[in-house]
Amino acid sequence: NKASVVANQLIPINTALTLIMMKAEVVTPMGIPAEEIPKLVGMQVNRAVPLGTTLMPDKVKNYE
């Protein structure tokens, strides 16, 4: 099972992601793969992401 990116804290809307905000966890359904964490640093979320929520591609601005 592959790990996904999960919010390590509440991430407010329009916040630029940092390493400390994210952790890798095996979750269902799968979100953004954990190996993409370095790519996500500096990207902004387009909505608030509660603690423990899986980061889905549609929650990150300009994620492809």
Results as ranks from 00 to 15, higher is better:
Q9M: 14
L40A: 02
I11R: 02
P12H: 07
T15I: 09
L19Q: 07
V49P: 05
R47K: 13
E35K: 11
M43C: 11
E35R: 12
L17P: 00
M43L: 11
K23F: 07
G52L: 06
P33Q: 06
I13F: 07
V27K: 06
V27Y: 05
T18F: 06
L40G: 02
P33G: 07
P38W: 10
Q44V: 14
P57C: 06
P29W: 08
K23D: 05
G31A: 04
T18L: 08
V27P: 01
M21G: 00
P29L: 07
T18Q: 10
I13L: 09
P29D: 05
Q44I: 14
L19M: 11
T54L: 05
K61G: 04
V60W: 01
P12F: 08
E35V: 13
V60H: 02
L17N: 00
M56I: 05
P38F: 10
L10I: 07
G52E: 01
K61P: 03
Q9T: 10
R47W: 10
P57R: 08
P29E: 04
E25D: 11
I11D: 03
N14S: 06
N62H: 11
N14R: 05
T15C: 09
E64H: 14
V49L: 10
M43A: 05
Y63S: 00
I20D: 12
M43T: 02
K2T: 12
T54V: 10
L10E: 12
T28L: 12
I20T: 12
P33W: 08
K23E: 05
M22A: 02
M30A: 13
E35M: 11
M22H: 00
R47Y: 12
T53Q: 14
T18Y: 03
S4C: 08
G31T: 04
Y63C: 05
K2A: 13
P33K: 07
K2R: 14
V5M: 01
I20Y: 14
G52P: 01
V6Q: 00
S4P: 02
I11K: 01
M56K: 02
A3G: 10
M56P: 00
V6P: 01
V41W: 00
E35W: 14
T15A: 10
L10D: 15
T54M: 05
T54I: 07
K39A: 11
I13Y: 08
P12A: 08
L40S: 02
M56D: 07
A34R: 04
I32G: 00
N62Q: 09
N46I: 14
K59T: 15
K2H: 13
M30E: 12
I11C: 05
M30F: 12
E35T: 13
N62P: 02
T53P: 02
M30N: 11
T15N: 01
G52H: 05
P38A: 09
G52K: 01
I11P: 02
E35D: 13
A24K: 06
L55V: 06
Q9R: 12
N14Y: 11
K23T: 09
A34F: 06
L19I: 10
A48M: 14
N1L: 15
I32D: 00
T53E: 15
E64R: 12
I32K: 00
P38S: 10
P57T: 02
L55D: 04
T54N: 03
V41A: 01
A3Q: 10
I37A: 04
V41D: 00
Y63F: 07
V60L: 12
M21P: 01
M22C: 07
A16L: 12
L40V: 02
P50I: 07
I37N: 04
E64L: 15
G42D: 03
L17R: 00
V26I: 13
P12C: 09
T18K: 10
S4F: 05
Y63D: 02
V26W: 12
K2L: 12
I32W: 03
A16E: 11
K61A: 10
M30K: 12
L40N: 01
I13R: 13
Q9W: 08
K23Y: 08
N46E: 07
K2W: 13
D58W: 15
Y63L: 04
A24T: 07
A3T: 06
I32F: 05
K23M: 08
V6A: 02
A16C: 14
A3K: 11
T15G: 03
G42S: 01
D58Q: 07
Q44C: 13
V26K: 10
L40M: 04
P38E: 10
N62G: 15
N1T: 14
S4D: 02
N14M: 08
K2V: 13
P12G: 05
D58C: 12
G52M: 04
Q9S: 07
K23S: 09
V45T: 09
V5A: 09
